[in-house]
Design a protein around this nucleic acid. Structure first.
Length: 317
DNA sequence: TGCCAGGCGGGGT
DNA sequence: ACCCCGCATGGC
């Protein structure tokens, strides 16, 4: 399917802003090519934005079938976090033995958000799997179930909507993608979305939102919190998994890791977790722990090494 | 080969 | 409240 350019606009991000790092992180090569970042906005009707940097401006072109000038600027602004103020977080991170490189090597990098449904898909793929395995699963889901679209010269993918997970062939495709027992969980999430269970979540408090997501069988505290961080920037939530549990216990000498991290990171927990995975290149626990304990907390950025920042350079699946 | 990896729920205590 | 185990898959 071919989408046509509908209109353009510009955004002026709050400084410091690093578009390259923001677009690079946890991204695939059909959404970022080193200069253009594709931001899927809607599956039906198909709508995507393409952002690129020009001096201190972001130039955004919107593609679709016909529009309908919804509040695309607001959506792109939120997706890239262009107006986010991280000054306070940089204060916290700057004196943290795990995160002190964030205001330095990663200055201006923001977390990109996606919609709640897609964030839950991402989070479910991280359950009980390594970084590499989780992102490979996700890569295959997008290739097998996403919608391929063409924009001018660019071929890209719009992530599948919950509806695609409720057709007969969906389970087979998800198994093919390697999701294993996560298949049933993500199908249940899709059903919950279709029933409207996840509508209005953004109006709820953090605790209520987490509780709502956990009503779906297979969604626990980690998955719910991660999805809310990745979609709604609810940085007060702490997605704590075995990986971070172990690292934080050793690096900070914590007994009660959850309470200890809350005390340390406060309302920035979610963003701190995100950046912890980035600075340690999301290495498997044994390697990440070694690096954390020796103060090797600067992301590698070598293109031959698969990491959150180089994912887009690789043919993952 | 067997074992493990950024969870989770169920069933035991 | 805890603890423990199995769960499906792929990589080493």
């Amino acid at each position: 399917m071919r989408l046509k350019p509908l209109y353009d606009f510009e955004l002026r991000p709050r400084e410091p802003f690093n578009f390259y790092l923001t677009a690079s992180c946890y991204n695939f090569n059909w959404w970022f090519d080193g200069s253009k970042c594709v931001i899927p906005l809607s599956s039906s009707p198909p709508l995507v934005a393409v952002a690129r940097q020009e001096d201190s401006e972001l130039m955004v072109t919107v593609y679709g079938v016909k529009g309908g000038r919804e509040d695309v600027a607001k959506m792109v602004e939120h997706a890239l976090g262009v107006n986010e103020d991280l000054a306070e977080f940089y204060g916290v991170a700057g004196r943290d033995p795990l995160l002190y490189e964030v205001p330095r090597a990663l200055s201006g990098m923001r977390l990109r958000t996606t919609n709640l449904w897609n964030a839950m898909l991402i989070a479910v793929c991280q359950q009980n799997s390594s970084f590499a395995q989780g992102w490979r699963m996700l890569c295959r889901v997008y290739k097998l179930m996403g919608k391929r679209v063409e924009l001018d010269g660019l071929t890209t993918i719009i992530p599948p909507s919950p509806r695609e997970f409720l057709v007969d062939s969906a389970r087979g495709l998800l198994k093919e993608a390697g999701l294993g027992y996560r298949t049933e969980t993500i199908v249940r999430v899709a059903e919950a979305v279709e029933r409207g269970l996840l509508e209005g979540v953004e109006e709820l408090s953090d605790e209520e939102a987490e509780k709502r997501l956990k009503e779906v069988k297979g969604i626990g505290a980690y998955t719910a919190r991660l999805a809310l961080v990745l979609s709604q920037r609810r940085y007060g939530l702490l997605p704590l998994d075995r990986w971070l549990e172990k690292i934080a216990r050793e690096v900070y000498g914590l007994g009660d890791v959850e309470a200890g991290l809350r005390a340390r990171w406060g309302r920035w927990c979610g963003l701190a977790v995100f950046f912890t995975t980035v600075v340690l290149d999301a290495e498997v626990l044994s390697k990440a722990l070694k690096r954390a304990l020796t103060g090797n907390v600067k992301p590698t950025l070598r293109r031959d090494k698969l990491s959150p920042l180089t994912l887009w350079m690789h043919e993952v699946c």
